[in-house]
Design a protein around this nucleic acid. Structure first.
Length: 271
DNA sequence: CAGCGCCCCTGCCCGC
DNA sequence: TGCGGGCAGGGGCGCT
C-alpha cells in the first residue's frame, strides 16, 4: 500500500491531530515488527510533546524534545488517528495515546513495518544516513541521475528503485515513470542517455505529485478511518496491466520479473 | 563496491 | 469447501 505519496498523505492526515500533543502512553501489543520495537519507548516519551511530524523517503519522523520516533509502514502498514476508546482490531500492533484522547494506531498485517528510536539527529541514523535525495527536491533531476548512473550495468528500473540513488520510488511508480519516459525497464542504467534521464526525472516528479494531490482528496476519509483510498488505480497505464493493450499504441503490454518484482512495459513505446 | 537473491510475514486469489 | 502455490505497493542483509 504505501508508496511515497501515501506516506505523505498519511503524514498530512495525522499531523493536525497529534502536533503539539502530549504523549500519555505507548501500547505495544506486538513488538515483533521488522525489528523489535524498543521496550523503553514509554519511559522515553511519556509526557513529551510532538514538535514535528516529518518524512524522509518512506519513513515518518515524529520529533520530540528527547529524540525522534521513526516509523515505516513496510508493505502493508497504515496509521490512523482514533479515539483512545476505539476497539482494537487485528494487527493493531502499536498505539501512541495522547493526553487529549487521540490515539495514533499502527496496523500492519505483514509486520514489515518498523517503529524505532532515532535520537535527536535522525538523519544520522543508520537507516537514513545513506538515503539519496528526495524525488521532489531540486537536488533530484535528470543530470543527477545521468551522472550517478555512468558505468552502471544494473537495469534502469532497479537503479531507479535504489533508495541510495533516490528515495520513495516504489514498484508502481517506477513502472509508470519509465513508461511515460519511453524507457525500457531492462535497459542498463549506464546506457540511458542524458536526454532520457531528463525526461525520466520529470516524469517521476509528475507522477508522484499527481498521486500526492489525489491522496489529498482522501485525507478526510483516511483520518476518519474508513480505509484505503483506491485513488490512482484507474490512472495507472502499465502497472497491473500486463497482457492488455498499450494506452498509446495498442501493442500488448509485456509483463516480466525484474529483481523479484513485477515489471510491465510496452515493447513498442519503450526502447 | 556493485549486483543479485533471499527473506521477514499475512492475506488473498486462483486452480485443482 | 479445502488446500497448495504464487503473488503483493519494501527494503535490509549476506553472498559472490
Amino acid at each position: 500500500m504505501p508508496e511515497l505519496p501515501e506516506v505523505e498523505t498519511t503524514r498530512r492526515g495525522i499531523e493536525p491531530h497529534i502536533i503539539e500533543q502530549q504523549l500519555e502512553r505507548v501500547t505495544v501489543r506486538n513488538g515483533s515488527l521488522r525489528w523489535p520495537v524498543p521496550k523503553d519507548l514509554q519511559s522515553l516519551l511519556q509526557g513529551q510533546e510532538i514538535l514535528e511530524v516529518g518524512r524522509r523517503g518512506k519513513y515518518l519522523l515524529l520529533r520530540f524534545k528527547a529524540g525522534t520516533l521513526l516509523m515505516h509502514l513496510g508493505m502493508s502498514g497504515s496509521l490512523r488517528v482514533v479515539k483512545a476508546t476505539e476497539a482494537v482490531g487485528k494487527h493493531d500492533h502499536v498505539d501512541l495515546t495522547f493526553v487529549n484522547g487521540a490515539t495514533l494506531r499502527l496496523n500492519d498485517p505483514r509486520r514489515f513495518g518498523a517503529v524505532l528510536w532515532a535520537g535527536n539527529d535522525p538523519q544520522d541514523h543508520e537507516l537514513l544516513s545513506h538515503l539519496g535525495p528526495e524525488p521532489l527536491s531540486d537536488e533530484f533531476d535528470g543530470e543527477y541521475m545521468f551522472q550517478r548512473s555512468r558505468k552502471r550495468s544494473q537495469a534502469i528500473k532497479q537503479f531507479l528503485m535504489d533508495s541510495r540513488v533516490v528515495v520513495g520510488v516504489g514498484n508502481i511508480y517506477a513502472n509508470e515513470a519509465l513508461f511515460k519516459a519511453g524507457i525500457r525497464p531492462t535497459k542498463a542504467a549506464g546506457k540511458v542517455t542524458r536526454k532520457a534521464y531528463l525526461r525520466l526525472a520529470d516524469e517521476v516528479k509528475l507522477v508522484l505529485e499527481k498521486a500526492i494531490a489525489q491522496g489529498g482528496t482522501t485525507l478526510k476519509d483516511f483520518v476518519g478511518g474508513d480505509g484505503k483510498p483506491g485513488y490512482f488505480k484507474q490512472e495507472l497505464l502499465v502497472y497491473g496491466r500486463g497482457g492488455e493493450p498499450c494506452a498509446q499504441c495498442d501493442a500488448v503490454l509485456k509483463e516480466i520479473r525484474l529483481g523479484q518484482r513485477s515489471t510491465v512495459y510496452c515493447p513498442q513505446c519503450q526502447k
